[in-house]
């Protein structure tokens, strides 16, 4: 692209190589598309162009590429994918920058740690299941009017606020060496409900992931959330808990929301140890 640009050719183009897969259990394959360059593009607008004209670089008509997105401003967490080898949000991946790093071509792959639904769409249900496992909510009495919440210092707010930005995008999980992919398929004589149940039980035994550990710190630091601390710490020391974290710190490096994951993990680790010891002496 950069070359073309300098030569001032009429049609500036660049290539996009996409790892496609028609559905679960199917073989994946690379497909190359040629896209005409416009200023201010990001990977979503590239995919929109491809959707409007689904034709490969060598002129073959194909089905449009499937992908997830919604907000287009990096707050909803939908559009996670691996772009030029790095897991990130597609909406904030600006084409100009990508071509600076890697002229002529952009490479798109689905996150590999989640089962592929189709093309760049993956099933991130496991990530939400972990939020259930760690009781990631404040257990208020109810939704009737009971006046203000507990007062909070600016300092407390400034600690909680960044943690509550986790948009469940899953970048940290893609980067984490301990978060291995599992792909379950529905059995022939299994109802959808039974399948969902089996998925949940399986996920609960596997590593819950840095995003969920950080949510434990968020809710255990909240003046009311704190009341359920020990339940959350139970989840942290159960099967699939924090003991699996190898402290590789890959997660924090890729989080688009700059969530201090390793700080959370360190705090959670200490709290979990104390909690385990206390349990040990209680019995």
């Amino acid at each position: 692209m950069a070359e073309n640009h300098r030569e001032g050719e009429a049609a500036k183009t660049f290539d996009v190589r996409i790892l496609r897969q028609a559905g679960p259990g199917q073989a994946s394959y690379w497909e190359r598309h040629r896209v005409s360059y416009e200023p201010d593009m990001n990977v979503i607008s590239v995919l929109q162009k491809i959707a409007a004209h689904p034709r490969t670089a060598d002129g073959q008509d194909v089905t449009p590429v499937a992908w997830d997105c919604n907000c287009l401003e990096e707050v909803c967490g939908s559009c996670t994918m691996v772009i030029n080898g790095r897991v990130r949000q597609a909406c904030s991946a600006l084409v100009d920058r990508l071509l600076e790093q890697h002229p002529d071509e952009i490479e798109l792959r689905p996150a590999s740690t989640f089962p592929v639904v189709r093309d760049l769409v993956v099933d991130r249900g496991r990530l939400f299941q972990a939020l259930k496992k760690v009781t990631a909510w404040v257990a208020v009495d109810g939704y009737y009017d009971r006046g203000e919440g507990p007062p909070q210092s600016q300092e407390e707010q400034e600690q909680l606020y960044p943690l509550s930005h986790c948009m469940s995008c899953g970048c940290c999980l893609e980067a984490c060496p301990q978060y291995a992919r599992v792909e379950l398929t529905r059995g022939v004589d299994e109802s959808p409900e039974e399948f969902v149940q089996r998925q949940a039980e399986t996920y609960d035994r596997l590593f819950l992931g840095p995003h969920a550990i950080s949510q434990v710190i968020l809710f255990n630091s909240h003046p009311t959330g704190r009341h359920m601390s020990s339940l959350r710490l139970d989840a942290l020391i159960a099967e699939g808990g924090i003991q699996l974290c190898g402290n590789a710190q890959n997660c924090v490096a890729v989080c688009p929301k700059d969530i201090p994951l390793t700080t959370s993990i360190a705090r959670a680790g200490r709290a979990a140890t104390v909690h385990a010891l206390r349990k040990w002496f209680d019995v």
């Binding site: 909510w137 404040v138 939704y143 009017d145 009971r146 203000e148 210092s153 707010q157 606020y161 509550s164």
Partner: peptide, 22 residues
């Protein structure tokens, strides 16, 4: 006002004044 109080109780990290009010 009741809605903001409820959301506060649910854990929304509203910005605070120095004294700790919303």
């Amino acid at each position: 006002p009741k809605i903001i109080n409820l959301m506060d109780r649910l854990g929304v990290t509203f910005n605070r004044t120095t004294e700790g009010f919303i």
